[in-house]
Amino acid sequence: MLLREVEYARPASVQEALRLLGSNDGARALAGGQTLINVMKARAASPDVLVDLADLGELRGIELGSDGTLEIGAMTTYTDIVESAEARARPILGEVCNQIADVQVRNRGTIGGNVCSNDPTNHLPPLLVAVGATMTILGQGGERSVPAQEFFLGVYMTAAGPGELLTKISVPPGKSDGFASVPIGRDGTCIVNVAASLDGGTPRLVIGCVDAVPVALMPDSVEEDAVRASVRGANLDPPADVHATADYRRHLAEVLALRAVALAAGRN
């Protein structure tokens, strides 16, 4: 399949990248390309200019702060996270990244691209909401921080608007996390996924694949009845497709919520 004609730039600085993104309405950031290049083949999107972030070293890498906060550059690949000693400070991150697709996709796909594409079936949007991550967005007007819960606005839409870049994702310390999913195939696209985190008092449950954005719930406790009640109380209206009916997705959401909570509780 051929892509429509496109221009390509590989800026050497973040400022330069912002200038390129800001000077053309049809410009798009290119991270790992593991979504964008397919979207361009299908011509579901045909950007005029691709601004490749590959040379922006300051967007890549993982740092563990003295307070235990992990700062992960947007261009950090899943493989980088899986192999990082620092990232083990929050073990769920590497564990979930290691379930995304396959070696080739993990070698190219980035944490920033995963959340900026906000495909409702992606692994990282619900996970990053559950762990209470904060996104740093840089635009011509300066830098701002957005809690993960407010970052996801709709299918393929996030708080990082046109002309802006997600630069890094900060993840607070913690370890009582769980992630449960029913994927298509062993490490494939999720039919439903649920991330749970019990750090910081109230349990947090975040369900993916059932709505345009991750659905965040706060059950009263980690008891089975409370978890079931909270998922039922969300009145989920998930999509139906060739993989699952809406009813089956609702059922999975409840079962996977219990599993994710049990996994998280096992790590207290």
Binding site: Y8, V105, N107
Partner: peptide, 27 residues
């Protein structure tokens, strides 16, 4: 497949395994 699913196009780029249908030549 041309869609990043089959892996028949896999090559190593600077030692890293990638699907070459999911990358531009200029990259």
């Amino acid at each position: 497949c041309d869609t990043g699913n089959c892996g028949a196009c896999s090559v190593l780029v600077d030692g890293v395994l990638v699907k070459s249908c999911m990358m531009l030549a200029v990259q």
